[in-house]
Design a protein around this nucleic acid. Structure first.
Length: 424
DNA sequence: TCTGGGGTCCTAGGACCC
DNA sequence: TCTGGGGTCCTAGGACCC
């Protein structure tokens, strides 16, 4: 932990919007925002939208008119497209270092240990230019001696035009200056609550947090907060995770495109969510030992509210969709109260165990040792090869009127890869 | 009319046992 | 009848992230 490390954080600039612009260059230079599921709120905003003062997560309907007035565009999210683009960006990045952690769909940490430090910003510029040329996506690069400091570096690389998307904070003087200018709430790991608390204690910026009294940190911050402080001091307290870890829980939920009051429709929706979640489960070779079903009314709407969940232990653990759906329906019946207009439902699997760790010769019949697994594998294979819903369990329904809205979806670029524009 | 979804980690406190 | 302390395990919920 004490060894001097060099970490780069590469972060795509307003990633979803940038993906859309790669395929539709006419969106360049205009306000563009990509909306969350159900076309609800803005989850990716172009610089022009930010300049209009529209905050992250703002409901679309509130700002629709303003965006239209400035010749802008709102788009439904197209995760198939963003997933593909993300893969291309990450593959490009892998050429620049043997040690890389894909942290999210639009971010990666990279170890630059052993690289000649004098030219690191030049190297970062080369990374940036290459990603832009090969994928069309603009990125920013922050370099520092810990992940948390690399986040700070990236923050300023993105916001100060003079840095041209690249900033190294390996230099102590520059680091001090940057940390003094960084509000404490912008530090990775400091959210709204800690921001408020720390400010109340007179800690306003990252530099003050870095130098805060150790007893104060021990007393008022959790172990996570403690790590954050160490990271600000330049220690490598949060390590680079190169191999993607298996999920410890899998959750699938959706808001409905309309209010839903019938139990039948709720059953269809939950069946569908269970099907998707179970497929994810099998994809990482896991079985679930616990399942939770939950639903809720629209919290933004006047009227009676209800939100609740029920869970059960699955013994033996399973990943067999029909079985999971059967139990999920029982949970749903328990948790459902008639007379409410529901807006959202979902399912969560937790206490996941690897198939390899489950003994095959249980006395009970086991998902793994009979035909059920073969059936699921076949279904997954078919659905991967064709559309995701080529084969599905009947309880998911066919009308699916509760489905989410995606009224502003961009064309299906991903089905026409030959059209992918090659940037000059 | 219209306000997302999917994760992780940590802690406090209850239940239970001796 | 009232009084104890310590330990573990589990769960709900909070806080944070993208």
């Amino acid at each position: 932990m004490t060894k001097r490390n060099i970490i780069a954080l590469i972060d795509c600039n307003n990633f979803y919007v940038s993906c859309e612009r790669v395929f539709d260059p006419s969106l360049e230079g205009k306000p563009v925002a990509v909306l969350s599921n159900n076309d609800g709120c803005m989850v990716s905003r172009s610089a022009e939208v930010k300049a209009l003062g529209i905050p992250m997560g703002a409901p679309a309907f509130k700002h629709e008119a303003l965006i239209a007035k400035h010749g802008g565009t709102l788009l439904s999210s197209n995760y198939a497209l963003y997933g593909d683009m993300s893969m291309r960006v990450m593959q490009t990045l892998e050429q620049f270092s043997p040690e890389i952690e894909i942290y999210s769909i639009d971010e990666a940490f990279m170890s630059l240990n052993g690289f000649p430090t004098v030219d690191l910003e030049a190297y970062a510029t080369q990374i940036r230019d290459t990603v832009k040329r090969w994928t069309g996506i603009p990125v920013s690069v922050g370099i520092a001696s810990s992940k948390t400091l690399a986040k700070v570096a990236n923050h300023w690389a993105k916001r100060v035009p003079g840095f041209k998307g690249v900033l190294s904070l390996l230099d102590e003087e520059r680091l001090e200056k940057a940390l003094k200018l960084t509000p404490v709430g912008k530090v990775w790991g400091i959210g709204r609550q800690y921001d408020k608390f720390l400010r109340g204690c007179g800690i306003e910026n990252a530099w003050q947090l870095r130098n805060a009294d150790e007893r104060f940190i021990d007393r008022y911050l959790t172990s996570v907060g403690h790590k954050t402080v160490l990271e600000l001091q330049g220690y490598h307290a949060i390590s680079l995770e190169e191999a993607p870890q298996d999920k410890k829980s899998i959750l699938v939920s959706r808001s409905f495109g309309k209010q839903v009051d019938s139990l039948e429709e709720l059953k269809e929706a939950v069946s569908s969510h269970v099907s998707v979640a179970a497929q994810k489960l099998r994809q990482q070779n896991s079985l679930a030992a616990r399942m939770m079903v939950f639903l809720s009314t629209n919290r933004f709407k006047e009227g009676p509210q209800y939100s609740n969940s029920k869970q059960m232990v699955l013994s033996p653990p399973t990943a067999y969709t029909p079985e999971l759906i059967k139990y999920a329906m029982e949970l749903l019946e328990e948790v459902h109260l008639p007379g409410f207009e529901y807006k959202k439902a979902g399912v969560m699997f937790s206490e996941l165990v690897s198939s390899d760790d489950v003994p095959l010769n249980f006395l009970e019949t086991n998902y793994l040792d009979d035909k059920r697994k073969v059936l699921m594998d076949t279904m997954d294979k078919l659905n991967r090869k064709n559309r995701r819903d080529t084969l599905f369990v009947a309880s998911c329904g066919t009308k699916q009127q509760w489905q989410m809205k995606r009224a502003r979806l961009s064309p299906a670029y991903t089905t026409r890869w030959s059209d992918l524009p090659r940037a000059k």
